[in-house]
């Protein structure tokens, strides 16, 4: 055990750098995924049938196919067409497309539960559709989806571990490195698991505080 801890300390700069990359990836895709999710959700409310159909197809495709395939397609496939993207760029694009699809789904579910007479009231008052979306729909739908959206953030954190399969030097990639030099696979991976557990706990605690701040009377989810 001592030897292993010594290794951990020796490699700590590398591990910290990996951890930084992991957290960075998670934060960026959580933000882009939320923005993307809202945008996709907005399109699902479109009056044009064609738009709705294609958006629904987009969501369904990204929910129904593995993230890894999208990452591999971009990272290992695109160079064949002369497009070379860095692992980081591939991750951001791939994750954003994926997370947006999921977040849009959650927002749609919340939307279905909304009291539609409120929307009629807003219309009757003379609000334009974009105003109704921004002022009436979005604030409610986001609040109702907070548990799902924060769960997605946790999912995002866990999914960053996939990034090392396309050579992105995230936390798990560094743990791999160490394990393959000292052959302490079990201890290394258990440590990794523990670190993810701690990170998830931090997100859970933050999410609880957020939920408390966002709560309105009558908005029990």
């Amino acid at each position: 055990m001592d030897a292993f801890i010594n290794d951990l300390i020796a490699y700590s700069p590398q591990i910290m750098a990996g951890l930084k990359n992991t957290v960075l990836l998670m934060v960026i895709m959580s933000v882009t995924g939320l923005i993307g999710g809202v945008a996709v959700f907005y399109l699902t409310l479109s009056r044009a049938n064609a738009v709705r159909t294609w958006v629904e197809r987009y969501i369904s495709f990204f929910i129904g196919t593995p993230l890894l395939v999208h990452l591999f397609l971009m990272y290992y496939g695109l160079p064949q067409l002369g497009v070379h993207l860095s692992a980081f760029t591939v991750c951001i694009i791939g994750f954003t497309l994926n997370v947006s699809a999921y977040n849009a789904r959650y927002l749609m579910t919340a939307y279905h539960g909304l009291d539609k007479t409120e929307l009629e009231a807003a219309q009757a008052q003379g609000f334009t559709p974009p105003e109704i979306f921004r002022l009436i729909i979005l604030p409610q739908v986001i609040r109702l989806s907070v548990p799902s959206l924060t769960n997605q953030v946790i999912q995002n954190l866990k999914d960053t571990s996939v990034a090392f399969l396309i050579q992105y030097p995230d936390f798990f990639a560094q743990v791999q490195e160490i394990a393959s030099t000292n052959f302490q696979f079990f201890k290394a991976y258990m440590t990794a698991g523990l670190v993810y557990l701690v990170l998830v706990s931090i997100i859970v605690l933050a999410a609880r505080r957020l939920e408390k701040r966002l709560i309105l009377p009558g908005f029990q989810t």
């Binding site: 866990k158 399969l165 302490q184 696979f185 079990f186 290394a188 990794a192 698991g193 993810y196 557990l197």
Partner: peptide
Amino acid sequence: LYVFRSIPVLVLLFIVFFGLPSM
């Protein structure tokens, strides 16, 4: 529930497949 909903699939897979043999 807490542990297995927090740990990434890939990490658990590596613990089980690459880690356990060293035990």
